[in-house]
Simulated assay, not measured.
Amino acid sequence: MWTLIQIDFKKMNKYVFLLPLISGVVVLLLASLSIGKNPIDESPWESYLLQMSTVCSIFFPISMALICSYIANSEHRYNTWKQIFTFPLRKSKIYFAKLMECIIAELIFFISVMIGFIFIGFIFIGTDVNVMNLILKAFVSLVIAYIPIIAFQLWLSLIIKNQAFPLSIGIFSAIFSYTFYVFPFEVGRFLFWTFPTSVLPIQLVIDEAQNMSIIQTENSSIYVGLSLVIGALIILMGMLHFTKRDIV
């Protein structure tokens, strides 16, 4: 499988993996605008973290949709699937190689954002080692929460030759992810597009007097577990669909 990943990296444009870094810079710049206008002065780090998560929920899925599409389109465009399938490897390993490339891109994004997030926070907010555990927990939770979204996006990109459709789905779901909360009977909470918001260990609360405060959440671990379970199911379904369907 690692051989396939190395082959893909050699034949793909290396600049495509600059996209997570560029997206991370945009997320940090937009999130950092909230530092000077922090409405919750007693919780500057927490407020900064929530702002980063909000900006990330739009830009990261869009960048991953582009990367998944590019990884799949490198085979669709030149009709090299049959050539790849002649390798003495199972189709499942080919699928997991593509998935690992997406996970590597995700890690590039979040590691760069976390380093920049801490660096900017130390400069403009101040040193507070007590928030390091909160930051680390939040970033690890976000990495896990985005796995179902990445797996779903890769599934669409691998199966559908015309990449306009997977890209449209990825962009639409990123822009309108927050609107999924309005689904009735708490259905929105179980749509995996909302997991990145639900897994955060903190949340913003606004009371009747429009006063804002940040509280610790008690059910974030539930959504981390749901992300793992649903992510594994989507990966399994995508792998089975990929291995049983002839892609030309």
Results as ranks from 00 to 15, higher is better:
L240T: 02
I144F: 03
E46I: 11
S177F: 06
Q153N: 09
G36M: 06
I125C: 09
S57W: 03
L154I: 01
L142V: 12
S57I: 02
Y78V: 14
A105K: 06
I150R: 00
W81F: 15
I144M: 05
I7A: 11
V140Y: 04
S23A: 15
N13D: 14
R90E: 08
P166N: 07
L204C: 11
G238W: 01
V55Y: 09
Y178T: 13
T194G: 03
W45R: 11
I22G: 06
F59Q: 03
T3F: 07
F117G: 00
M114G: 11
L50N: 08
I169M: 02
F185N: 09
I125D: 12
P201E: 09
N79P: 04
I144P: 02
Q210N: 14
F59C: 10
K137P: 02
I159E: 01
V199Y: 05
A65V: 01
I62E: 02
S227P: 02
L167R: 07
N38G: 07
T127S: 15
L200W: 10
S53P: 00
V55R: 00
I149C: 02
Y78P: 09
A97C: 08
V199R: 08
T54V: 10
D246F: 07
S57F: 01
S112A: 15
N79C: 08
I214H: 12
V55L: 05
S177A: 13
L154W: 00
M237N: 03
G238N: 03
W155E: 00
K98G: 01
L99S: 02
L50Y: 11
N133W: 11
V229W: 03
S141T: 07
S57V: 08
W193I: 04
K244C: 02
M1W: 02
V113D: 04
I7S: 13
F190W: 15
M52G: 10
F139D: 07
S213W: 11
T243P: 04
T80N: 12
I58W: 09
L49V: 12
E42Y: 15
F122E: 15
L18S: 12
S198E: 15
P196D: 07
I120S: 04
F110A: 07
F110N: 06
F87P: 04
H241R: 07
T194E: 07
T217G: 08
I108K: 04
K93G: 04
K98E: 03
P166D: 01
V199T: 08
P88F: 10
I111Q: 04
L136T: 13
F192T: 01
P184K: 07
Q210S: 14
